[in-house]
C-alpha cells in the first residue's frame, strides 16, 4: 500500500466542517442532557415511589439499549409511526440529550447521595425547609462531587456523536467518510479523523484532571 501524504492535508477542511457540527451537537445535546439528568436524578431520590419508578425506568431503558438502536428508533421508527420526519440534526441533538440525560441522572443521584445525611439534618434542624437545605447546603456540595464524572460523560457523548453519521448528520465521522469515498484514501482519512477527536478529548481529559486535583484540595 502507498500512503498519499497530500491526503492528510487535503482532508483537513472537510474535517474542520465536521468538527464544528460534532461540537455543536455535543454541546447542545449535553446541555439538554443536563436538564433531563438533573430532573430525573432528583426524581430518583424522591420520597414518592411512583416518581422514583419513572426516573429509574427512564435510566434503565436508555442504559439498557445500544445508542445505535436509539438513533434508528427515533430517526426511523417514530417517524414511521407518526408519519412525520424530523431534521437529522434536530434528531441528533435530541438523541444525545436523551442518552446523556440518563447517565447524568445517575451522576446527579450519586452526587446527592454521597453527601452525608447529617448535612440535611443540620439544615433542617435550623429551620430551613427541605428545598432551602437542598439548594444552599446539599446541592453546592454535590455539584463538586459531580464535576469529574460529568466531564467524563461529556467526552463519552462527544465520541457517541460519531454514530450519528449513520443518519447522515455531517459531523466529523461522516465528513471523513465522505472524503474517503471520493478519494479512497482510507488510512489517511481515518487516521486524521482519530486525530481530530483526540484534539478535543485530550485537552478535555487534562482539564478534568486539573479540576479533580483542585476539588481534592478544597
Amino acid at each position: 500500500m502507498v500512503i498519499n501524504p497530500q491526503a492528510f492535508i487535503d482532508v483537513i477542511p472537510f474535517l474542520i466542517d465536521g468538527l464544528w457540527i460534532t461540537l455543536y451537537i455535543t454541546i447542545f445535546g449535553v446541555a439538554i442532557g443536563c436538564v433531563i439528568g438533573t430532573l430525573f436524578g432528583l426524581m430518583s431520590i424522591s420520597r414518592f415511589r411512583i416518581v422514583r419508578f419513572i426516573a429509574v425506568t427512564y435510566v434503565e431503558v436508555v442504559r439498557g439499549t445500544p445508542l445505535l438502536a436509539q438513533i434508528f428508533f427515533i430517526h426511523l421508527g417514530i417517524p414511521a409511526l407518526i408519519g412525520h420526519t424530523f431534521d437529522p440534526y434536530i434528531t441528533g441533538v435530541a438523541i444525545i440529550g436523551i442518552n446523556s440525560g440518563a447517565y447524568i441522572a445517575e451522576i446527579v443521584r450519586g452526587g446527592v447521595n454521597s453527601i452525608d445525611k447529617g448535612q440535611m439534618e443540620a439544615g433542617r434542624s435550623l429551620g430551613l425547609n427541605s428545598r432551602q437545605t437542598m439548594r444552599y447546603i446539599i446541592w453546592p456540595q454535590a455539584l463538586k462531587v459531580m464535576i469529574p464524572p460529568f466531564g467524563n460523560q461529556f467526552v463519552i457523548s462527544l465520541k457517541d456523536t460519531s454514530l450519528l453519521s449513520s443518519i447522515a448528520v455531517a459531523e466529523l465521522m461522516y465528513s471523513g467518510r465522505q472524503y474517503m469515498t471520493i478519494t479512497f484514501s482510507a488510512f489517511e482519512t481515518m487516521f486524521m479523523v482519530c486525530i481530530f477527536y483526540l484534539i478535543i478529548t485530550i485537552p478535555a481529559s487534562l482539564l478534568l484532571r486539573y479540576l479533580e486535583r483542585r476539588i481534592d484540595k478544597s
Binding site: 452525608d116 447529617g118 448535612q119 443540620a122 433542617r124 434542624s125 435550623l126 429551620g127 425547609n129
Partner: peptide, 17 residues
C-alpha cells in the same frame, strides 16, 4: 420549620457545612 427555629440542635458529628 417554624418550630425548629426555636429548637437548636447540636450533633455528635458536628455536621458543619
Amino acid at each position: 420549620n417554624r418550630y425548629r427555629q426555636d429548637v437548636g440542635m447540636v450533633f455528635q458529628h458536628f455536621n458543619l457545612f
